[in-house]
Amino acid sequence: MIELDNISLAYAGRTGPVLALEGTSLSVGQGEFAAVVGPSGCGKSTLMKLVTGLIKPTTGTVSVDGAQVHGPVKMAGMAFQNANLLPWRTVTDNILLPLEIVEPYRSHFRAKKDEYRARVENLLSIVGLQGFGDRYPWELSGGMQQRASLCRSLIHEPKLLMLDEPFAALDAFTREELWCVLRDVWQRLNFTVILVTHDLREAVFLADTIHVMSARPGRIIDTRTVDFARPRDLDVCYEREFTDLVHVLRNKIAEVRKA
């Protein structure tokens, strides 16, 4: 599904060119849940922009769905640490936003608005927000806003979902709750996910494969497969193999931070 082949990326910094990524290769299969972890400032977010075609690599090639990426991929859903909902729109209208932009929904937006609204309602109930569609974002708590943001990234049924630390600003309980929400949605709709995170437990709990990045210039230095049976329960977080894997990843990152 996604192939990054020997990517490097340099941008102009204040004191000359800065190399954000160097020799990065990454491959994510169709329907795979991939997590990217690494020390801060290693270019994880840059990686996200590369995959979605928002920026071009200096060298190397990115291809998504078999085709080389030259501009925005036009089909990815994205969610970030901040929910970034539009305060002048209700929750429902916020979630409808991608359908006003992506084809083929865009051309039928007026005609099929009722159908789309039903779809939003359905998504809201999946993430536990039923009945909140007519509220405004500022009437919602941070966790609820993040749920709405997740709905917005999924409404157009993207084949690819990019998540950049989507749960980082939430409290521990809400975060674990949303892990389960994401797990369930992903299992139901089976899209490809790239999750960038600092939270190793989050990565191990959710992902099929975990890619560890080095400090700047970032490159993938280790890839681990996680083979806990699915569907996973939160209890898996307290199993021996789980904590062992978190430990291994932790040591890896500690190593590259020193280097």
Partner: peptide
Amino acid sequence: IEPELEDVLRALGASKLDVMRKVGIPR
């Protein structure tokens, strides 16, 4: 305009005009 929000829209294939109409002008 929040750059992340612009990224969300551009990753969906939004043109500059779309970003302005949906976000920039109301904002």
